[in-house]
Simulated assay, not measured.
Amino acid sequence: MTDTPPTSKTNQEDTKVCPVDPSTQAVALRGLTKEYNGTVVVDNIFLDIPIGAIYGIVGPNGAGKTTMLSMATGLLRPTKGSAWIAGANVWDEPLEAKKAMGLLADGLPIFDRLSGRELLTYVGALRGLDEDVVQLRSAELLEALGLAEAGDKRIVDYSAGMTKKILLAQALLHNPKVLILDEPLEAVDPVSGRLIQQILRNFAAAGGTVVLSSHVMELVEGLCDHVAIINKGVVELASHVKDIPSEKSLTDLFVDIVGGAALAEGSLAWLGGGEK
């Protein structure tokens, strides 16, 4: 990992706008922008995520959260702008950035003809971990996530919640510096959800950084110490949760910022009772 950010012209321009050195942050975004056919879906985002934080990213459907995270992790090339993971520029130093991160991305292809245990063995080999370390960590992760009995079952036969948990296990396997999770508790049962939250708290307490995107406000409010609200491709708010006014819940603040919707009077009045 490099101690200083790359010195390309683009990166120099980005860092002039935001004086915080991106190499000091767990995740740093500078002017991150994505356009599709002239339509801007992520618009010049600057964001710093400090080391050791549990950082929640929330926003309405189509706000640009997943697109932003895809660019930040190297899955999608930005139209312009730069991103750093643990001090490594994602596009100039991709191997260093990828070594530092564990990623659970929603909607990516899965090697689902492998068993859960085989997937972890494969990922461990890709990460260059010793075989004994992979076996030990795999056994511990499968046990902790309630997948020990399903470890030898093919992932294609897993439920949606079980699939989410094995993907979390593969993201944790190499003990990354930064863990980036897109909807980590979607389809996960409440018991497993509580256990996963404890794993994430322990991970951050030991010096790791968690970045999670979620639509579940209660999760973000109860778990995260920082939050960013994304709306229409821009960061509307980035704050430590202690700086959010105590008289407002995160849900109330979210609705205030992105705008609420109300059902028009008389709309869908035909619903109910099964009558035509």
Rank of each mutant, 00 (worst) to 15 (best):
G272L: 04
W84F: 14
P190G: 04
V133M: 02
K9T: 14
Q12K: 10
L29H: 01
I110N: 14
V235H: 11
F111I: 11
L168H: 05
K34R: 15
H174L: 10
V41E: 05
A206R: 15
L212A: 01
V241F: 02
G62A: 03
T15S: 08
I110T: 15
L104M: 13
A83G: 07
P60L: 03
M1G: 14
L271E: 12
A105S: 15
K80N: 12
I49K: 08
A269N: 13
G207E: 13
M101D: 04
K177Y: 06
L141T: 08
A100V: 03
D130P: 08
M1F: 12
N89K: 02
I110P: 08
A238R: 08
E140D: 10
L179G: 12
P94Q: 03
G38F: 09
M101G: 01
D106V: 10
P245W: 06
D225M: 02
D157G: 12
E93M: 10
M217Y: 04
G193S: 06
V210Y: 11
H226C: 02
N89W: 01
G74C: 02
G272F: 04
A144F: 03
A169I: 02
F111Q: 12
E13V: 10
G116C: 09
G274V: 14
I180R: 08
V17E: 11
S267I: 01
K276E: 15
P6A: 06
A169H: 05
S70V: 01
